[in-house]
Design a protein around this nucleic acid. Structure first.
Lengths: 246, 246
DNA sequence: AGCTAAGTTGACGTCGACGTCAATGTCAAC
DNA sequence: GTTGACATTGACGTCGACGTCAACTTAGCT
């Protein structure tokens, strides 16, 4: 069975190509005027409200237009479809969140990182601290954007473009973590024969998967304990163990 | 922000309650006749084919009827809606898969388990072996049912009943793992101060999350290496470490 | 054979979301 | 202040999926 996923057709949302063939030019271009730019922003903001409230599938273009305070027809001046506006919204927001995570976590531990080793940062204890910070930050970010994360997942299941965004986002996170693991291996703090790539993927899956279960699937967790346990498992699994064995 | 998820309305699929109020009795009852039972089976099988081929959203009741070789109207003799048939299909299949996993893995390691400790099973090495077996089995199961797993996720994002199924499935797995961790703690093989519940959740998230990324989101992995890395991280994180530190 | 309850059929009406478009409005430049 | 490009408006036609239902078939029982 080839890597599959149901409903992955080319177009956009739930794929049902309109029978009528006449394809109107989808606004790929950004607005010309200043007024246009503002209208586009209003629609994006409205889209966010409506999507988060109703979910992608139940959201209607009419609702978005109404929320934005513009006529139904105006929507199509800026976006070709519900799916198009969602993609735009997601792309914009994800870039924001990416920055959020980057700020405040130097190179190393977990779903974050990006600076040269600040020197004197080469102890296991320091690494553990960095992992914890990154995890806490990630969890907080997810908590503050739960609705959007749920939407992201939802649309990923049927829109190829959004799926690509998801893969990209994941690879970015994994890349950072892999880099951090390789660094620790270079420093002799992590076993050299550990597969950094696979491990990074696994650890990222652990954190994002559990947080998803907590916030989106409504699991019963306490944030601090969650961060603590994730950090402990993360670091112990890499052999940065503060708790040797028993 | 309360545990949210978009599009979570009561009804079924993408929530759009038919304006007309007259609710016809949804077939909650199972077929009376033998013929009826067989027809229901055929529809279920057809539903699986169509769902896996087109995804839940693009699947039409008409397609399912056609695939089953029955008239459009007959569908409604057995199921009240597309969502209803999907729920039935999923419930049935999940029970099957649950058994699949249970068989062949005694109490302990990973996403499986259920027997009394066979005695002489109390070494760390044995525990590691059990975790590996369970992981390998889980990965294989997922690989052989990728399409269905993708569908499960898809429908979870908007159908509350399916979401409940997902939560239940997750809790079952977590319960087994937690039990196994507690066992290992009793045996002094795992640190007693580790939170077994949270850890079980995290480890299950790691395995299912990574496998999901591999098979559904089409990541680039090699199965054996995947199982090996997952097992290594799993066991090391619990302190069953075959690889002490470096 | 005749009766009845269960099941089958497929044509039909309904409904809601979409995307269009002709008329109208806005604004900046000349 | 006139012009023209760009944007707004909202009523309208289209379309496809759904669920219904009245007529018909099947099969078990007496």
């Amino acid at each position: 069975m080839p890597p599959t996923s149901p409903g992955a057709t080319a177009a956009g949302g739930p794929t049902r190509p309109p029978a009528g063939a006449g394809v109107a030019a989808p606004p790929t271009t950004l607005p010309t005027t200043e007024r246009g730019r503002r209208q586009r922003e209003r629609l994006l903001a409205a889209a966010r409200v409506v999507f988060e409230r109703d979910g992608f599938l139940d959201a209607r273009v009419t609702d978005i237009s109404a929320e934005a305070g513009v006529a139904h027809g105006s929507f199509y001046t800026y976006f070709g479809s519900k799916t198009a506006v969602f993609r735009a919204l997601l792309a914009a927001t994800m870039d924001e969140l990416y920055d959020t995570l980057r700020v405040g976590t130097a190179d190393s531990g977990a779903p974050t990182a990006d600076a040269p080793a600040p020197a004197g940062t080469r102890s296991a204890e320091e690494a553990v601290r960095r992992v914890e910070r990154a995890n806490r930050r990630f969890v907080a970010m997810y908590r503050e954007n739960t609705a959007l994360m749920a939407l992201f997942e939802q649309v990923t299941t049927f829109d190829p473009e959004v799926r690509a965004l998801r893969q990209a986002a994941r690879e970015r996170m994994v890349g950072r973590v892999r880099h951090s693991i390789e660094q620790l291996q270079t420093d002799g703090l992590v076993a050299a024969d550990l597969d950094a790539e696979y491990s990074a993927h696994a650890l990222v899956a652990m954190v994002s998967g559990l947080v998803h279960y907590w916030l989106v699937l409504d699991g019963d967790f306490e944030e601090e304990r969650l961060v603590a346990t994730l950090t402990r498992l993360w670091t112990t699994s890499l052999g940065l163990a503060p708790t040797p064995t028993v």
